[in-house]
């Protein structure tokens, strides 16, 4: 899933200055799972903002809604009839949802309520960590299923570096060394000989480096 975290409320308040009718729009997908922008977080933020503005003596109307997804037209269309009532929409979806809203509703200011962080997993409730950076050319077949692009601080395709110590990364003792995990896996799989295979220079053009990316599937396209 896409993992996000809530923006500090004071930062949100700053961006909402001057708007009198605001819709807080949650998303039922990833940000619900990572507890940053689902129905619950919408309700909490809405309550806090209502109190804030009231305490400031400002009559600001805050309303709540949560869509199934904000990254598909069909769900975003659900607010087409009502969106014009609002001075601004504060989206608690990831950056994808915020932008798709902004592209769709040209005349409404769309503001982000979360900081989108990474693609990751729920390690345990309340703990999420990164697993993928969407480089566009998966190399997991060569690295025992563990990704050095997203999990090595230096993205070393032929690691580990000299800073790997007791299974941890040099940047922080809390961060596991991706290459230690790769090597442990190779050992478990009885494939240590794979370690000596040099991974060639990567084509980063399918990553951020190549500019905004697009996937087109002609066979399913309408």
């Amino acid at each position: 899933m896409i993992v996000a975290k809530q923006k500090p409320i004071e930062e949100i308040i700053e961006t909402l200055k001057g708007y009198n009718k605001i819709l807080i729009l949650g998303c039922n997908e990833c940000v619900t799972v990572c507890e940053a922008g689902g129905k619950k977080e919408v309700a909490v933020l809405a309550s806090a903002l209502r109190m804030y503005f009231m305490n400031q003596g400002q009559e600001v109307k805050i309303e709540e809604a949560t869509l199934e997804r904000q990254c598909d037209h069909e769900y975003l269309e659900e607010i087409r009839k009502t969106v014009d009532q609002y001075d601004a929409v504060l989206s608690l979806a990831c950056g994808v949802g915020v932008q798709f809203l902004a592209e769709k509703y040209m005349h409404t200011p769309i503001l982000p309520g979360v900081d989108t962080c990474f693609m990751g997993v729920t390690e345990e409730r309340g703990v999420w960590s990164e697993r993928c950076q969407g480089c566009g050319q998966c190399i997991l077949a060569w690295t025992a299923g563990i990704c050095p692009v997203s999990r090595c601080a230096k993205r070393l395709l032929n690691g580990p570096c000299g800073g790997s110590s007791k299974g941890k990364c040099e940047i922080n003792k809390e961060v596991p060394c991706a290459w230690q995990i790769i090597i442990d896996r190779l050992n478990e799989l009885g494939r240590m000989e794979d370690y000596e295979r040099l991974i060639p220079i990567k084509d980063w053009s399918t990553e951020r480096a190549g500019g905004p990316r697009k996937v087109v599937r002609e066979d399913v396209r309408s």
């Binding site: 500090p8 409320i9 308040i13 909490v44 806090a48 109190m51 804030y52 305490n55």
Partner: peptide, 8 residues
Amino acid sequence: EILEKIGL
């Protein structure tokens, strides 16, 4: 924390 930040 929230009440503090919103001034209550």
